[in-house]
Design a protein around this nucleic acid. Structure first.
Lengths: 205, 205
DNA sequence: AAGTTTGTTAACCAAATGGTTAATTTTAAT
DNA sequence: ATTAAAATTAACCATTTGGTTAACAAACTT
């Protein structure tokens, strides 16, 4: 019989429960008792493993925000042509959000409510250099005459907007169009190629 | 000297304070005492004018969500050509969000946390018919060979994504690029025409 | 002017909430 | 087997929070 410690693995259970509750309710709406209940442990254990609500939240936020820009830096450095880079980014980014549908809203919302959390838990640790690389790649493609002149910031905004926003707006979309979960997932699956081609068609010379 | 009642206009002060607090903190993070303090009135007055936190919130939510799709229905019925309709929608929509930068995140977030609030306070009252009109207009333009074939839902998603998402992601953008308030506002001003042309260029035959 | 309604306040209340304590059990070390 | 360290629990605590009450003040009605 496995030891109680390793068997129960309390810390994992807490993190799993905290992930659920924080992402579902947000920091302000999350209740420590709720987390304890879902982890099936005593509330005091939360404070035993993590000092307080803030600390527990920061672990979850950091882990979640860390998924936000996965391997883009490497991808931008790859020898794919510019259009294939866009195809690859769009497709993998939408797939990532399909796997974590609440991620964009959670991160954006908490960063708006408390911008410090971003600086503390995101900037220092894995300050993503992909924006610079992305920028350079766009500027180069403009110079080489592959794409129309465009401010890289706007192009980057456009790409991530079309990938992430539909997930943030899902309840609104569902309300306005009657689209339900299954159909929504199909649409998002379509967007993996659709958005990329939409962008490429718009900037191609 | 004006009467105390009309002079003080407590209800307006409450609504103004509630607007601030709810939009800043969200429903879960908002505190009734905070609203009372900002309105410079006794907390009991909140319950005198509005039954409870939920009721007060619903007034604010309804009023806020009401700004979300302003005059699009009329605009879609106008005799502008399809491309000018898109230019007009994008421009006026971004301008609306510049005037109410927290509106998209507030509405989307609260609808995610509690989808019922949308049905109760949005759907019934001003169920926007503009989606249907928009759809028809797109389908017509496709048939007339003005634009490339495209699923209207995706095009609508693309348009609103590029308009609204940058405001939702502002803290993230600011963190990744160092862009501050003034420069951000300039970028959004540019997007009024930029996004429209980006879309048109992408769907034009 | 008297009485009724409306508006406002201070004090209060019960429940919820984040957090702590002290005792107990389990596990690991000797 | 003994002991020290780590994990867990029940009970408790102080503060916050949404909400109420009862008394009072101002404003209309007649």
């Amino acid at each position: 019989m496995a030891s109680k410690r390793k068997d129960s693995n309390t810390e994992e259970k807490i993190l799993s429960a905290a992930r659920q509750v924080f992402i579902e309710k947000g920091f302000a709406g999350a209740r420590m008792q709720d987390i304890a209940d879902r982890a099936e442990i005593n509330k005091a254990m939360l404070h035993y493993y993590f000092k307080n609500k803030e600390m527990l939240f920061e672990v979850i936020f950091r882990e979640t925000a860390g998924k936000l820009f996965p391997h883009f830096e490497k991808l931008m450095e790859s020898d794919l042509n510019f259009f294939d880079k866009i195809r690859s980014i769009v497709s993998s980014y939408i797939e990532m959000i399909i796997q974590n549908p609440y991620l964009p809203l959670f991160v954006m919302n908490e960063m708006n409510k408390n911008p410090q959390i971003g600086l503390k838990n995101f900037f220092e640790a894995q300050k993503p250099g992909f924006v610079k690389k992305f920028r350079e790649s766009i500027e180069e493609s403009v110079k080489n005459g592959i794409i129309q002149p465009i401010n890289p910031i706007h192009l980057i905004m456009n790409i991530f907007s079309m990938c992430a926003f539909p997930f943030i707006a899902k309840p609104m979309i569902s309300m306005l169009t009657g689209i339900e979960d299954e159909q929504f997932k199909n649409l998002m699956e379509q967007r993996k190629v659709l958005v990329a081609e939409f962008i490429i068609h718009s900037i191609k010379k």
